[in-house]
Design a protein around this nucleic acid. Structure first.
Length: 500
RNA sequence: CGCGGGGUGGAGCAGCCCGGUAGCUCACCAGGCUCAUAACCUGGGGGUCGCAGGUUCAAAUCCUGCCCCCGCAACCA
């Protein structure tokens, strides 16, 4: 038994949660649940990023304080995670005192290490983007609200750690994944690395965490948001807890924030003298049809709509099953329905109906005795006993999609087994054989169900309850003969679409 | 010549590192079964593996050149 510490990014409160947020969070939840099932102790951290200019502006627009504004928006995320069955262990808000004081501690330490200095910068500043833009960007004319600004700010000596970071990435092949993202970062690091501006004068933007050694400034996103990964597991406040959990096993992120994590964050950790996370895993984006999801295109998919239409488990399954690790995936209602019907309705749900229907009809609704097994049953048993190991291995490599395919393959083999053995015929001639087949199918189904539980917690709990097998382990033979089956409606009723 | 990834049956992907019958899921066609959610099972059609050369007994796989698509190049999961 070991520990597993998984994080999602902390999401910016101003965005309404969309399918991308839901995906990352479900992925973290699924990994966490698989690890828990395997006996690991899990810490799953997610949360919200509440500081910054945009929050302040939005609050002012409503005539509210930034804090009140955030407080109002937080439930949108919390409710969605609840609806999505997200079992996080802690939920950080960057405005919480427990986080803010650690951010200040971190700044102080990095400062004492000599990695923070001040510099004056003059350039074009985009109010909309909250950042200085380059001369080339200014000339492109694509930025509105631009003004010339000269400002003193604090900088973090990121450049100091460039060489060390390159070495680290090269020596730890699993540090940045998938591999092409690692190459991307190494490519990025071939150019000289600049230092990182980490402050904002309060005069311009005061909705942030005060810099401990200069009260006229607040710190800016990176030293605020990223630090949540250590502030919450106890850095600077609970050494025992921190020692237990840090370094994180995996930071799950979208590909858009790869640089901030693999370069900014890691150099910050270098400066603090802390070990780096085991893996930074950058997944792809959900494209809507063929195009990127964007507010201006009006094609943002709201996860709540999906849940209302198809159910939580189906949404979780679809998102996990459809996205190949690291690549972009297309979301379309059509692909959702196909996935739902073929995997969940036809293969998995239908197997339950076949098995429970036959046991109901021919065996008085009680799990039959397995009796003496033949080679057919031995083969199923063997595959069932191998499955948990394969799934565990795939999950340790973040190959959730393949783990699901592996499990569904086993479900399909059970349907095939049923077809060949035809227990509905055997029931008329050889009841012992019929018993054996139905026990085997039901037991196989039980194990497949347990393997799917991290992805579909609700429906799999229902199946295990039907089988009278709550709290059983994925080991052959735990289904008890004589247990009465509960009656049930179809698990995943097929989605019928009118053909055009 | 900025760096990197990729181009495999209608769709989405695997295989390429370590050359040797081109595989998976979905869709399509035919048959079987009829326990089940018109679901399940079997068989089948469909691919010059981006293009052109080279190495080799043998290339999707190695080498060279070219074409095309995509990602990254400091704040969208």
């Amino acid at each position: 038994m070991s520990k597993f510490f998984v994080t999602t990014p902390i999401y910016y409160v101003n965005d309404a949660p969309h399918i991308g947020h839901a995906y990352t969070t479900i992925l973290a939840d699924v990994l966490g649940r698989y690890h828990r099932a395997a006996g690991d102790e899990v810490f799953f951290l997610t949360g919200l990023d509440e500081h910054g200019q945009k929050v302040k502006q939005a609050a002012e627009k409503r005539g509210a304080t930034p804090q009140a504004h955030c407080d109002d928006l937080v439930p949108r995320f919390l409710n969605l995670w609840k609806r999505l069955d997200i079992r996080y262990d802690d939920f950080v808000r960057t405005t919480q005192e427990r986080h803010k004081k650690i951010v200040q501690l971190v700044l102080q330490k990095v400062h004492e290490n000599g990695d923070i200095y001040t510099d004056e910068y003059e350039g074009w500043y985009s109010v909309a983007e909250e950042r200085f833009i380059t001369e080339a960007e200014y000339e492109s004319g694509q930025f509105r609200d631009v003004k010339k600004l000269k400002e003193k700010n604090y900088f973090f000596k990121m450049s100091k750690y460039q060489h060390r970071l390159i070495e680290y990435i090269e020596q730890h092949p699993d540090f940045i994944r998938p591999e092409h993202r690692k190459n991307e970062m190494l490519g990025f690091l071939r150019q000289p690395l600049g230092d990182l501006c980490i402050s904002r004068p309060k005069a311009r933007m005061d909705w942030g965490i005060e810099i401990p050694f200069d009260r006229d400034y607040v710190t800016y996103v990176w030293f605020d948001a990223l630090v949540n990964y250590i502030s919450i597991p106890g850095y600077g406040s609970d050494e025992e807890k921190f020692k237990k959990w840090w370094p994180a096993d995996v930071h799950l992120i979208g590909k858009d924030i790869l640089t901030t994590h693999s370069i900014y964050w890691t150099t910050m950790l270098f400066s603090l003298g802390l070990p780096l996370p085991g893996t930074i895993f950058a997944h792809g984006w959900w494209l809507i049809g063929e195009t990127k999801m964007s507010k201006s295109l009006g094609n943002v998919v709201n996860p709540l709509d999906l849940i209302n239409t198809y159910g939580v488990d189906a949404v979780r399954y679809y998102l996990m099953r459809e996205m190949v690790l690291g690549l972009d995936a297309n979301f379309t209602p059509d692909s959702f329905i196909k996935c739902f019907n073929s995997d969940l309705a036809n293969d998995f749900g239908n197997l339950l109906n076949r098995v429970s229907g036959l046991i109901q009809k021919n065996h008085g609704g009680k799990i039959p005795e397995p009796g003496a097994v033949t080679e057919h049953e031995s083969l199923i048993q063997m595959n069932a006993n191998v499955l948990p190991g394969s799934v565990k291995l795939l999950i340790s490599q973040f190959k959730v999609q393949e783990a699901l395919m592996e499990t569904l393959l086993f479900v399909q083999s059970l349907n095939k087994y049923m077809e060949i053995q035809a227990p509905w015929k055997l029931a008329k001639t050889d009841m012992k054989a019929a018993n054996r087949v139905l026990y085997t199918a039901a037991e196989g189904l039980r194990i497949a169900t347990i393997m799917l539980a991290p992805v579909m917690p609700e429906k799999t709990a229902a199946v295990l309850s039907i089988l009278g097998a709550e709290d059983t382990k994925p080991v052959w033979g735990q289904l008890r003969p004589g247990t009465p089956l509960k009656s049930h409606p179809p698990l995943f009723p097929r989605i019928e679409v009118e053909k055009a």
